[in-house]
């Protein structure tokens, strides 16, 4: 097992924020490991809201850090140590400028029906096929009755907001009840989970209502009292015709904003897991949590 934690600090500048993120993972093995491969998907995405990203990545055994691109086009770092080790830590620091985002800054389409027509068109369904399909983590058991239906008198955006709230109220935020293997049938049954589970449920229900939705993995600045923990955060983006992808954070019942720093998107957690690894080790592995407190730097 490999644990990772991060620390994030922001300082406010007019119109934009400068973020410092440190990500740390630590790993102990009982016996020597001589074959290990890791791939980190933790670098903030470059987009119009996230710019001037700098990356500093280190590991404790001076293995080569290889920068690459994964199958979905996101930046990754691969580490494949050539020497044996029992203990390894990874530490990444990122700096970026987050432009001030007003999530409500758009003109809704006056004719609601056009948008509903659009999402039913074949071309639309083909183009957004990946984010409309049921995946391992976004499958709602067939025996479950419809959980959330859109009210077509309201706009798609309003419906998604309602869905965001519905998921927020349906699930109780509870760390350590679920893990990365938990699927929606368990979530719906027990009504407890973390950001990942909130997001999967949101995506599944949006897709059931023909709205493309994708899973977002990233960092959340928790300074504002948001739910989350010192792990990476997850939220969703839904595609609204004529508006594009809009971020919804059902764990906090808000729209994604200045506090959300995106790393990657995908159909579900599987496409975005921050760390994938193959480690050939015998004996048990010990995991140590390490929390790093970083300074807030004023510019």
């Amino acid at each position: 097992m490999l644990e990772h934690s991060f620390n994030l600090a922001a300082c406010i500048k007019p119109m934009s924020l400068e973020y410092f993120i440190t990500y740390k993972a630590e790993n102990h093995y009982e016996s020597m490991v001589n074959d290990a491969h890791w791939q980190f998907l933790i670098i903030p995405e470059h987009n119009i809201n996230q710019e001037f990203i700098t990356v500093d990545f280190k590991n404790s055994i001076d293995a080569y850090n290889e920068h690459s691109i994964n199958g979905y086009g996101f930046k990754t770092i691969r580490v494949q140590p050539k020497s044996k080790f029992k203990h390894i830590t990874f530490e990444a620091s990122f700096k970026l400028i987050k432009n001030n985002v007003n999530p409500f800054d758009f003109e809704p389409n006056s004719d609601i029906a056009i948008d509903y027509q659009k999402v039913m068109e074949l071309d639309f369904k083909v183009d957004f096929e990946p984010f409309l399909r049921q995946t391992h983590y976004t499958s709602i058991p067939t025996e479950t009755k419809t959980l959330f239906s859109f009210d077509t008198h309201k706009s798609i955006f309003e419906n998604l907001q309602a869905l965001n709230q519905w998921v927020f109220e349906k699930i109780y935020y509870a760390p350590e009840v679920t893990d990365v293997y938990t699927t929606l049938d368990q979530i719906i049954k027990h009504r407890q989970g973390v950001c990942q589970d909130f997001t999967h449920l949101f995506c599944a229900l949006a897709r059931q209502n023909h709205i493309p939705a994708r899973y977002i993995s990233g960092y959340l600045h928790q300074g504002n009292g948001y739910f989350g923990d010192s792990q990476m955060h997850a939220w969703a983006e839904a595609y609204i015709p004529n508006l594009g992808w809009i971020g919804f954070d059902p764990t906090n019942n808000i729209l994604a904003n200045n506090s959300h720093i995106k790393v990657a998107h995908g159909k579900d957690y599987n496409d975005c897991s921050p760390l994938r690894g193959v480690v050939y080790a015998s004996g048990s592995n010990e995991t140590k949590h390490s929390v790093l407190v970083s300074h807030q730097q004023q510019q």
Partner: peptide
């Protein structure tokens, strides 16, 4: 490629897909 597809497979080559 266990880093891109099935993570627990030892048949492949980590990083091959990239």
């Amino acid at each position: 490629d266990p880093l891109e597809f099935k993570p627990n497979s030892s048949l492949g080559v980590p990083g091959l897909f990239a």
